[in-house]
């Protein structure tokens, strides 16, 4: 039964993935849809981030101070450097340093 469940979930998820690849065909995206589609990225990233940082076990919960400071520091550094790798290069040491002093 486990195998069957996994195959069905995989098939349904692939259906979601392939749906627009098949539906659009050689047609281009309607103009009215271009604006909203350009916002999928920032909106989805922020939604996932909000869910990761501020919820726990299905309830709203504040992010630990060290995590919040690390994330804000990472945001500022990437904003200035435009280098996404800097997020981890700065964020993780900030979290380690705060943990070392008891946060």
């Amino acid at each position: 039964m486990t195998w069957a469940v996994l195959v069905v979930i995989g098939a349904c998820t692939y259906g979601l993935r392939a749906s627009m690849f098949v539906a659009l065909g050689s047609r281009s995206v309607p103009e009215w849809l271009e604006g909203p589609l350009a916002l999928v990225g920032p909106a989805a990233i922020a939604a996932l981030l909000g869910s990761m940082l501020f919820t726990h076990d299905g309830a709203v919960s504040g992010a630990p101070l060290a995590d919040a400071v690390a994330v804000v520091a990472a945001f500022i550094v990437v904003r200035r450097t435009q280098n996404v790798m800097a997020a981890m290069a700065v964020g993780l040491p900030v979290a380690w340093a705060l943990a070392a002093v008891g946060f």
Binding site: G41, P42, I45, A46, L48, L49, M52, L53, D67, A70, V71, A74, F75, I76, V78, R79, Q82, V84, M85, A86, A87, M88, G91, L92, A95, W96, A99
Partner: peptide, 21 residues
């Protein structure tokens, strides 16, 4: 646990958000 690898995914995402938004 002290390596805080659990923070890697949110950090990568916040970096992408900082660059793209």
């Amino acid at each position: 646990q002290a390596l805080r690898l659990d923070l890697a995914a949110p950090l990568a995402m916040v970096g992408l958000l900082a660059k793209s938004a």
